[in-house]
Design a protein around this nucleic acid. Structure first.
Lengths: 206, 206
DNA sequence: GCAGTTGCTGACCGATCGGTCAATTACCGT
DNA sequence: ACGGTAATTGACCGATCGGTCAGCAACTGC
């Protein structure tokens, strides 16, 4: 009788806890979130949380691992491939899909990557980001190109969860908006990572 | 005799504490930073910190207020001015200067604006950001334009402190790099906030 | 009926949190 | 020499932190 996948009224407790924890970690921060808060929001006791996850850090690990695994996967797929324009475009779209699907996870380890650097799963995330940085803008890149990459990465992670801060209303939870967001994101990030197509740049730099 | 401004070997204790606190708040997060840590790094006791600042929150307030005050100032200057292109350019450069000068402060209330929204000074920062959002991309703006603004804002705040995370080495503490960063930042942000100058935009939005 | 496992909980632990307070030291003008 | 103020500190407080542990239901297989 419990084998009734068509009735998702009650998900597995550990999944509920992960979902609640992820939301709290992303909005209040890891150190700003207590196990008691997570338990309260999810409707369990603190002891139950520690029954399903051996520690607060293990909970963070379980929450972030799927996202950073897939992140590494699509990055490897691109690097191993010859760096054709088509492969670059495919990676870019896969990356945008990753951002949309795992926006809370990405936001968490982007904006807290420094304070949590000694947590293994976050260290993996930082290393993967670093690999991506080297792939997108190798050491011989200009300062501006490296700036562009950082802005694209940090900006996307910030913006996709920004309406949690102020109601810009463009990342409201209805999934339909994602299909509206996706092409715009692809366009903007593509524009940021490509050295600007062709038009004249005013010499306003001086 | 103590009036010797040419020997800044020892700054005022409250300034030392503010500097240390700012660095900790930006890297470890507000809730991830204890008064004990601040005291240890600054070389004082926890009691001394609470002597100079009545509470942890008051310390955060003192640290962030100058940045958000100037932020509101340059934003008001732009809004009150007629929205000529020259005024927009002036605002943009002033904004970039603000980002460079107060990068740690901006990073703090951008990336922790949601978790600290009930701290008055952070609430002011959020309100100011919202005002800037309305000025840059009014409600009739497209989703992509609002995305661009968010990416520019969050991306700049993230990137300018990113080398604290991984050594991209472009924001190393030597102030000379700022003069290299500034024109590049102005260029990129200008490009993000302007609907793309003149070349054909594919109708990929639909 | 009964041992075994699973899920969940309250009681409890040492450590640390932000914050208060009284005492101490050093320096000031007089 | 003396009173006053500013600066600093350790001792201490209640609350909360992450985490441990023994127990308690409920559902199994036998």
């Amino acid at each position: 009788m419990p084998a009734e996948p068509s009735v998702p009224a009650r998900a597995k407790p550990s999944d509920e806890l992960q979902a609640v924890a992820l939301e709290q970690f992303a909005t209040r921060g890891f150190s700003g979130t207590s196990l008691q808060q997570i338990a309260d929001v999810a409707g369990y006791s603190k002891s139950s949380v520690l029954y399903h996850f051996s520690s607060k850090e293990a909970l963070l690990d379980a929450v972030l691992t799927p996202a950073i695994d897939e992140f590494g996967r699509i990055l490897d797929a691109w690097i191993s491939d010859a760096s054709t324009d088509a492969a670059r475009q495919a990676f870019l779209e896969a990356f945008v899909d990753l951002l949309l699907r795992y926006r809370l996870e990405v936001h968490t380890f982007i904006s807290q990557g420094q304070s949590l650097e000694d947590v293994p799963v976050v260290a993996r995330a930082n290393a993967t980001i670093l690999r991506m940085a080297e792939a997108v803008c190798p050491p011989e890149s200009s300062v501006e190109d490296r700036l562009r990459f950082g802005i694209a990465l940090g900006g996307a992670a910030y913006t996709l969860t920004a309406d949690l801060t102020f109601g810009s209303g463009m990342t409201t939870d209805d999934a339909a908006s994602d299909v509206e967001l996706r092409p715009a994101l692809v366009h903007i990030i593509s524009e940021l990572l490509s050295p600007v197509p062709a038009h004249a740049v005013p010499a306003s730099t001086r």
